[in-house]
Design a binder for these strands. Structure first.
Length: 203
DNA sequence: ATCAAGATTACCT
DNA sequence: GGTAATCTTGATA
C-alpha cells in the first residue's frame, strides 16, 4: 500500500465558498504521510465557517496572528489550539483574503488505525467502543493524526497532508444541522454529516 | 499586566 | 445529564 494510488484533489476544488465545499468533503479521504506509513480517514462530519455574517468564525472581525491562515488562498490547512488541550484541523476555502474554512469534525479510520490507537489510548488493540471513539471529534482527529500548530498553513496540495477522492456521496445521505460547541451564530445550519455513519461526533 | 472566553474532551453521577 | 481540566489568544489598561 502507498499513497500514489490516491487521486489528490486539485487546487481548484478549494477555490469556492466554505458552504459549497463543506458537503463535498464528505466521503473524501483525509491523508497524512508519515515516515514508514500513511494515515487515512474518510471524512464523515464537517462544519463551514464563513468570513462574514458568521460571528462564530475565527475570521469574523478580521485577520489576527492566530487566524491568518484562514485568509490564505483556498487549499491551506488551518490548525488552531483550543481549551488548553486540543488542536483542530480546518480546510481553508475561497480566494485569498476571504477568511473561510471548513472544520473537519469526524473521520472514519481507513488506514493506520493502530498508530492512531497508540496516540489516543497508548495501545494497539481496541475494543469496538474504542474504535468508534478513535476519531469522532475534531480534537481526537488531530491527536490520532499527530497534527499540531507546526502544521498550520501547510498546503493541502502538497505531499504531506492532503485530501483525495473517495466515495461518491449523494445528497440523500447527507444530514444538515446547526453547528456544535459555539455560542454565537448558533442558528446557522452549517454542519453536515453522513447519516449512516457510526463515526460522527454527535447526533 | 491582567482577564475572560473558547469551533473540546474525559470522566463523573 | 453535568462539569473540571487546561492554556493560548486578543482585548483592555
Amino acid at each position: 500500500m502507498n499513497t500514489t494510488q490516491y487521486r489528490k484533489l486539485p487546487e481548484s476544488f478549494y477555490q469556492k465558498s466554505a458552504l459549497e465545499i463543506a458537503p463535498k468533503l464528505l466521503g473524501k479521504l483525509f491523508i497524512k504521510k508519515e515516515e514508514e506509513q500513511f494515515l487515512a480517514g474518510k471524512i464523515v462530519e464537517v462544519e463551514a465557517y464563513a468570513g462574514v455574517d458568521d460571528e462564530a468564525s475565527h475570521s469574523f472581525g478580521g485577520e489576527t496572528k492566530r487566524n491568518s491562515v484562514m485568509f490564505a488562498s483556498g487549499g491551506a490547512l488551518y490548525v488552531y489550539f483550543i481549551y488548553g488541550n486540543h488542536y483542530c484541523a480546518n480546510v481553508v476555502c475561497d480566494r485569498k483574503d476571504v477568511g473561510a474554512a471548513v472544520l473537519i469534525r469526524a473521520v472514519e479510520p481507513i488506514s493506520g488505525a493502530e498508530t492512531m490507537a497508540h496516540r489516543r489510548f497508548q495501545k494497539s488493540e481496541l475494543t469496538a467502543k474504542e474504535l468508534i471513539n478513535l476519531t469522532n471529534g475534531p480534537g481526537k482527529i488531530c491527536k490520532a493524526f499527530n497534527i499540531s500548530k507546526r502544521d498550520d498553513g501547510k498546503n493541502l496540495c502538497g505531499e504531506e497532508i492532503f485530501i483525495a477522492e473517495g466515495e461518491k456521496i449523494l445528497k440523500n445521505r447527507i444530514a444538515r444541522t446547526t453547528r456544535i460547541g459555539i455560542q454565537k451564530s448558533k442558528e446557522l445550519p452549517w454542519r453536515f454529516y453522513l447519516k449512516e455513519s457510526r463515526f460522527i461526533s454527535a447526533k
